[in-house]
Design a protein around this nucleic acid. Sequence first.
DNA 1: GATGGGCCTTCCAGCCGTTGGAAGGTCAAG
DNA 2: CTTGACCTTCCAACGGCTGGAAGGCCCATC
Lengths: 152, 152
Amino acid sequence: MNIGQAAKVSGVNAKLIRYYESIGLIPEADRTASGYRVYTPHEVNILRFVRRARTLGFSIERIQQLVGLWRHRDRASAEVKRIALDHVAELEAKIAAMRAMSDTLQELADACQGDHRPDCPILRDLESSAPRLAQGNGRPRFRAAAGADQTS
Amino acid sequence: MNIGQAAKVSGVNAKLIRYYESIGLIPEADRTASGYRVYTPHEVNILRFVRRARTLGFSIERIQQLVGLWRHRDRASAEVKRIALDHVAELEAKIAAMRAMSDTLQELADACQGDHRPDCPILRDLESSAPRLAQGNGRPRFRAAAGADQTS
DNA sequence: GATGGGCCTTCCAGCCGTTGGAAGGTCAAG
DNA sequence: CTTGACCTTCCAACGGCTGGAAGGCCCATC
């Protein structure tokens, strides 16, 4: 099975497979005499594992840990659970930050006429140099992304 | 006012100010004879505007549009509102995707004993090549982010 | 006037997880 | 033998920064 086939059945792009190999997320594939990568069903399973984990938003680093635990039959499920819950916590933090952004913006948009006239609460909020309600440094209602990362 | 001062009062890192200038988000600052950038209160206001917009999660590209509208006194608030609501829609899409991830993982973690034993529903889910039912209640689980983007 | 420290300048590289493209080798069918 | 679909490697870009190196400027103090 060459990389194109493996990509098709695993759902992981051939380019991405090569990338995953290059960063050491998956082991180096065997090669044919002419240098083509060769994949076994077992390796395809690893690819599927990685894909599913990415779908759940795990970082590459955490997936590496998960793959490691997966391979060892005598792992403790507590370790897996901890990684999962760490990830859940990160997701929740990002969700909360984005929720705050979205709500603030929705409020501002609700207050905006959205017509041909220039007056706009959204721009007024953005240009405000001093902290006002729902914003900035002083005594915030919901602080959009207080101390948190951007959406990335 | 040099870049360090402008950074302090605007809340935008000096490095970031230079970066914003380099990508054309803010106009090129005037220079002293010796090449130092010089900032006026007006330019500081632009920086604050940008900072607030980033806090609300707007992309640089959209901030460029917003700054443009902000500068033109005869803009239509409808345009600003549209940009804001487009952004809200993106935020909501990302939130929904992450909500699905988080819920799925939380369910799996709930079903995981988290002890010294190796058995782990989380790993079972990850290794499953085909979508399966949620552990425990036999109802279909939320496929995390089906068809949706990653969190990026 | 020399020295020191803190500011400023530019440029280059890296983070994350991909994705795209160029330039070339390989393989199987017609 | 040619075509075209695959494969290979390497390099660059996306967004939005952040860090560091190497060097210039400015001001205060000795």
